[in-house]
Design a protein around this nucleic acid. Structure first.
Length: 574
DNA sequence: CTCAATACTTAGAACGCATGAC
DNA sequence: GTCATGCGTTCTAAGTATTGAG
């Protein structure tokens, strides 16, 4: 079947040949640009190493911790961890059993033998004074004078200047995360079984440095040494360490606007592959409608994480089959937690064949069993790339997002002459929103949402009152004008009419704003904008609509998409 | 090939600062 | 000037992709 797919695909259209040709041209261009052999990411790399967070400052003598009502002076190590907990006391995490249990277990490990003997019940711990001290500190920071704030800013800038940049192949590049992650209590997303565990302080002895052999090797902090210094130019990271919660490796890497990222495989390149999918997506869709039978294998087990799934790892409890639902036949109801424990809920009508297959896959299984027990992401992507070179699930996502944006922009925006910039931007946001909904990019409603919505509503109400008052005045003025017919009175009518119109306009604007905000309550636009939408679509739209590109991309985004802003013409089509 | 380790991208929340309304 | 609010930045968790060992 893969062979046949490829043949069909190759013969179907001239435009495919064209796009294939284009891909090769881009490949060559990219080759030219990168100028290094495969797998080599740089020839020269020099940096100052990561920035370490400041050492723990023990509590002042007048701040106390109490156990069972009695004052206890904690050892520095135990005290530091106690402060982590105290700082989070306002957060609801600290009320959760898993969080508390994990915290307490790890905390006890930091205690001295004596402390461990004494402190056996978290419920008997009183962190009140530590908590109060933390809040006072936050408050004090907020109330700093202008000069103090300025001094702090300058100090931070000094750190950025020293540690925030590296030299990569003769270019000074901004580092994305040059700071070692400070210690604290782990906060996973969703019901994470490890929430509350102690994330330990990283020492230079834990850190591997990666740089050029011939570069100036970064100095470890005084009295310390690095775990290792290596010179591996097949990777892009500058430093790494292993964190203690999941045992995962953390990396110090470059900023998103660096050459390495912008010309890396992920950015421009992914959009070209996705564009190519446009020319053969119909074939591929027809094909998978034909062979609705896949048979592969595999399972996997990892260290405990929050219970989340993706399309390949769905379990049978995540879908419900409805032969009939409302007025539709063969409906699949999805309900599961995806990445970041974000819920996906949807009812999707499918064709009979798919419905029957799903039913078959669920047979003789029980809760906890995988729906597609012979499928995994590797297998899926292998199959996809046999349909079109470079095709993966992610390419589909990029394609779907970009094509949706383009369609929505066409549907939602009028000609450039028809509307004001604000209205154009609203349309752009709506198109962006449609994409975010498609990709299930959700956010928690902002904490201040209800309040700010109420504030806006109050403004709207006030404006409404104002409007009716203005209308009333207009009516009065008209009556006056009719009975008297003086020029002055007529002028007054005109003035009142203008006032009513202005009022109406402002009211409309606010109402639109309220709608926009309400619609955006649980939708996050940033992720799709940054990661899935071909920036050339947006740049072309700006050119066509005569909207400055600054209105849709901020500085950071303009840096990241500089290549698209430079090269895109108004007639660009995804 | 499989599995685990490693590398890199994607993600939402928290933070903090600029801005604009009053 | 004050204050809320929205926005950009920072942070780091949580995915996917790739590599490499056996």
């Amino acid at each position: 079947a893969p062979g046949r797919d490829f043949t069909i695909q190759r013969l179907t259209s001239v435009s495919q040949l064209m796009s294939f040709f284009f891909i090769i041209m881009v490949l060559l261009a990219r080759w030219e640009e990168e100028k290094y052999e495969d797998g080599v990411k740089w020839k020269f790399l020099e940096h100052n190493g990561p920035y370490f967070p400041p050492e723990y400052q023990p509590l002042p003598d007048d701040v106390h911790f109490y156990y069972n009502g009695k004052e206890v002076k904690l050892s520095p190590a135990a005290e530091e961890v106690a402060v982590f907990f105290a700082q989070m006391l306002d957060h609801e995490y600290t009320t959760k059993k898993v969080f508390r249990d994990n915290f307490f277990k790890d905390w006890r490990e930091e205690m001295t033998h004596e402390e461990r003997l004494l402190i056996k019940d978290l419920g008997k711990c009183d962190f009140g004074e530590l908590h109060a001290m933390h809040k006072a500190k936050v408050e004090a920071r907020k109330n700093m004078t202008k000069e103090e704030k300025q001094a702090l800013k300058e100090a931070n800038q000094k750190i950025v200047d020293e540690y925030g940049y590296c030299l990569l192949d003769h270019h000074r590049e901004r580092i994305g995360n040059f700071k070692i992650e400070p210690p604290g209590l782990f906060r996973g997303r969703g019901e994470h079984p490890k929430q509350g565990m102690l994330k330990k302080r990283i020492q230079p002895e834990d850190v591997i440095i990666n740089c050029s052999k011939e570069s100036r090797i970064p100095e470890p902090p005084a009295g310390h040494r690095w775990k290792e210094v290596r010179h591996d130019n097949s990777v892009t990271w500058l430093a790494s360490w292993t964190e203690n919660i999941q045992g995962a490796i953390k990396y110090i890497m470059l900023n998103a606007n660096s050459k390495l990222k912008v010309s890396g495989p992920a950015s421009r390149w992914q959009y070209e592959v996705a564009r190519k999918l446009k020319s053969c997506v119909d074939d591929i869709r027809n094909q998978y409608m034909k062979d609705l039978h896949s048979r592969e294998m595999e399972k996997r087990q990892k260290t405990p994480t929050a219970d989340t799934v993706g399309c390949c790892s769905l379990r049978i409890e995540h879908i419900t089959l409805h032969k009939q639902l409302d007025d539709k036949e063969f409906v699949v109801e999805f309900d599961f937690l995806g990445k970041d424990s974000i819920r996906y809920y949807n009812k999707v009508p499918v064709i009979k064949k798919v419905f029957k297959n799903l039913k078959l896959f669920m047979e003789n299984k029980e809760t906890g069993d995988e729906l597609f027990d012979r499928l995994n992401t590797g297998r899926l992507n292998k199959h996809l790339s046999s349909l079109m070179p470079g095709l993966t699930a992610k390419v589909f996502r990029t394609y779907n997002a970009s094509i949706t944006l383009q369609q929505q922009l066409r549907e939602l925006t009028n000609s450039k002459l028809d509307s004001a910039t604000a209205e154009k931007l609203l349309s752009y946001n709506r198109a962006n929103r449609a994409v975010a909904v498609l990709c299930n990019h959700q956010r928690a409603p902002p904490k201040t949402f209800e309040q700010s919505m109420a504030n806006l509503q109050a403004k709207i109400d006030a404006r409404k009152d104002q409007l009716s008052a203005a209308k009333e005045e207009l009516k009065e003025a008209k009556k006056e004008a009719k009975s008297k017919g003086e020029a002055d009175a007529k002028l007054l009518v005109e003035r009142k009419q203008a006032a009513v119109a202005r009022c109406k306009e402002q009211l409309l604007k606010m109402e639109v704003q309220a709608t926009d905000r309400e619609e955006n309550k649980q939708i996050a636009l940033g992720t799709s904008k940054l990661n899935y939408l071909d920036p050339r679509i947006s740049v072309a739209w700006c050119k066509n609509m005569e909207v400055p590109v600054e209105k849709i991309y901020n500085k950071t985004q303009r840096d990241k998409f500089a290549w698209a802003i430079d090269m895109t013409e108004a007639d660009f089509e995804f």
